[in-house]
Nucleic acid binder design. Structure first.
Lengths: 126, 126
DNA sequence: TTTATATATGAATATTTGTTCATATGTAGT
DNA sequence: ACTACATATGAACAAATATTCATATATAAA
């Protein structure tokens, strides 16, 4: 079947769908999360969206560990763990304290623990 | 500085770090989440780790919408929305009902709403 | 059964991201 | 200052993923 050159079709800068409930849209269009906030929130979940970081979070939900303990516990290189801890730090999911040469990590606060636990519950209930 | 050929270095199949707290490791090594569960949980968070899907979740946290409403509301193509709804469905985050030609989506349950809200709270508190 | 419209999906491309390797930084002890 | 060791990080490569485009499926009406 032949298709017209897209350039020939009259430009329609608006939405191409016809089934919209205009009243609903008008009501909610101003209540939706901003793009900036959506990006921010997506980044938080993205941080939790990696199995290595989940295993780190799981360990830290049970006790405080130094970097090399985590490497041993999860059987991964120190470098890989350290990279991932930085990602977790950037999302304020973990905090750390230095003691001599070692750096000990733990969950940032109880709120983070609850967020993690809610996720666990969700996958276990289905 | 010259580096020996890695092949010449004696193979050490164990961990290369020396600072491990062996007793801690022994205590927790059997309590860490399994790889399968970690993958599963990471997939859940990964699903939430995209700004388009966050905006869909945000809309659905406020009301039920059909696919083309979401496309209009978020100013995206029907195809893109539909692809992302499938991802959300696969993680049991949204459910849908068909009514004639239209398909209406909503959050799967209150637990999902709580998970989403916890995330929102986290980014707003910092 | 033909047409119109709402939604779903396979393939392809462009972008993002996790790990490794090599190396840098930071801290403590000699 | 020098050495040892714990942790951090830049660059590069491999793997995962979001959107677009084209098209398929599903439902309803004529």
């Amino acid at each position: 079947m032949e298709v017209e050159n897209p350039k020939d079709i009259e430009q329609n800068p608006v939405c191409e769908v016809q089934c919209v409930h205009s009243d609903l849209i008008r009501t909610y269009v101003n209540q939706i999360i901003t793009s900036a906030q959506a990006n921010h929130l997506a980044d938080l979940f993205k941080t939790l969206g990696d199995s290595t970081r989940i295993r780190i979070m799981d360990a830290l939900s049970k006790a405080e560990f130094c970097v090399c303990d985590l490497a041993e516990l999860l059987d991964m290189s120190q470098s890989a763990i350290s990279h991932q801890l930085r990602v977790l730090r950037n999302s304020n999911l973990v905090k750390y304290r230095r003691e001599g040469k070692m750096v000990y990590y733990s969950l940032d606060d109880d709120h983070v623990l609850r967020l993690y636990s809610q996720g666990l519950e969700h996958i276990n209930e289905k």
